[in-house]
């Protein structure tokens, strides 16, 4: 694995490499697709496991993660990149990777729908996938208030009570201590 990262570093600038829970490398936005192409064609990471995104609302950034798998080396490698986070209804933009793996198309549709990240040129990118005719902030953005939306839209039924899990389990498991404290 170190050898692979050395090889990558010869051609691309990596801002961060972590090996704490699996190997993740962070690269610049403009390098991402060429890095993925390099990893697929030269290093043998032939399988795209998933593409996902994280909303860093404080830093005003989206983090995209491409998780790749190499059947030959039996190992996984995550490629991270940070793109600018736009304010809704503007969409963020990223290069499409569907020409490398056809399956990337579906993930990109999902990201477009859930985060509002556009991938120009990706097939069927504008078609609805899970949310059909959604007209609010994309629901996985952190400035979208799910609870408020649900209460306004879905007629919550009366009588739901909530418990703080830690207190509730303490009462359940050690009821006498609870009495003492009271």
């Amino acid at each position: 694995m170190e050898q692979i990262i050395e090889n990558i570093k010869k051609q691309f600038t990596l801002s961060d490499v972590t090996t704490a829970h699996g190997t993740y490398i962070t690269c610049e936005k403009k390098d991402t697709v060429s890095l993925l192409t390099y990893l697929k064609d030269v290093e043998g990471f032939k399988h795209l496991v998933l593409i996902t995104a994280v909303d860093w609302i404080e830093d005003n950034k989206f983090q995209l993660t491409y998780l790749l798998n190499s059947p030959k080396l039996k190992t996984e490698l995550g490629v991270r990149t940070f793109i600018e986070r736009s304010v809704w209804p503007e969409e963020s933009e990223m290069q499409s990777a569907h020409h490398l793996w056809p399956a990337a198309k579906t993930y990109q549709r999902e990201l477009h729908e859930m985060f509002g990240i556009d991938f120009p040129g990706s097939p069927e990118i504008n078609d609805p996938l899970i949310l059909e005719w959604w007209d609010d902030i994309p629901p996985y953005r952190r400035d979208f208030d799910t609870k408020k939306y649900s209460e306004e839209t879905y007629y919550p039924r009366e009588g739901r009570s909530t418990n703080d899990p830690s207190d509730y389990m303490k009462d359940q498991l050690y009821p006498r201590e609870g009495e003492k404290n009271a």
Binding site: I130, L131, T146, K147, S150, Y154, P156, R157, R160
Partner: peptide
């Protein structure tokens, strides 16, 4: 009945009888 564990989800119906 009431949305169950998805009661505050953005995409799940809470009360079917509506």
């Amino acid at each position: 009945i009431n949305g169950g564990m998805y009661w505050d989800s953005y995409n799940t119906v809470n009360r079917l009888d509506h």
